[in-house]
Design a protein around this nucleic acid. Sequence first.
DNA 1: ATTGAATGTTTCATTTTTTGAAGTAAATCG
DNA 2: CGATTTACTTCAAAAAATGAAACATTCAAT
Lengths: 138, 138
Amino acid sequence: MGVYALYWKLEEVIATEVAETGLSRPEAHMLIKLGTPMRMGVLAREMLALPSTITATADSLERAGYLRRSRDPDDRRAWLLELTPEGRTLRAEFVADAGALFHEVSGLDACETEEFARLARKIRLTILETGLSEGFKT
Amino acid sequence: MGVYALYWKLEEVIATEVAETGLSRPEAHMLIKLGTPMRMGVLAREMLALPSTITATADSLERAGYLRRSRDPDDRRAWLLELTPEGRTLRAEFVADAGALFHEVSGLDACETEEFARLARKIRLTILETGLSEGFKT
DNA sequence: ATTGAATGTTTCATTTTTTGAAGTAAATCG
DNA sequence: CGATTTACTTCAAAAAATGAAACATTCAAT
């Protein structure tokens, strides 16, 4: 339940940021996920969305000038989505603001924050290794 | 960023549970939030949704027999939403399954889990005190 | 090479959700 | 009492997600 409260607080922090940037919620999530260039199919799995949804979101971010598509040289059926400089700037602001907002609201002291971050990092690694979509395998 | 990975994992865990119960995403969130009876306006703020959205979600949970409305004795304009026994049962399963799934996926040992839970609880308390919708005050 | 199946994305019509404005009922204030 | 505010509901319109069909490329087997 503690984790669940965190979840909603993050949701709120994101909503706040979203309101300021003029992005939609899915656009904001895509921006954050694109810290590193990524194929659309991978994004679809990570964002728990269908390819067609990713297409739409990528279209509007591309129109807004925050990302560009380039063919994946390894498989020319696939696109790599990559943030433009503007996209990277916006993402950096977004992440910094959200982090500050979140920290401000967590109520942890410096030592606890460090410990929490350590555990979160560890969980993150496990998650990245395990891969997403555990429950989504047919 | 660690917290963000947690967020998506929880999102995924919830999606998995949602698929099994036949609830919609907002219905599931409302079910979880209703651990204790709550006024619709409060729920609206907590779920970052409009009153009209809450009405719709509550309607369908009510039709499904998982919650009932009763007038708030302190203010008869307001409704208190309260889970029925079926609703409480479903919620308990949901929370238990989600907790198990999440723990399974976290990769923390017993000691770390304890420490993580402690920090999460502390953050939760801070959040509950601070109240939600920090960024939502006009 | 050539065919056939599989993969990665797109398109678009449909369904599902969310929004926002207008409405009802109860409380509060003067 | 009457005016205003608060809590929720209604419903039509907007936004977002879905799923099926299409297209291009790759991969595998001839």
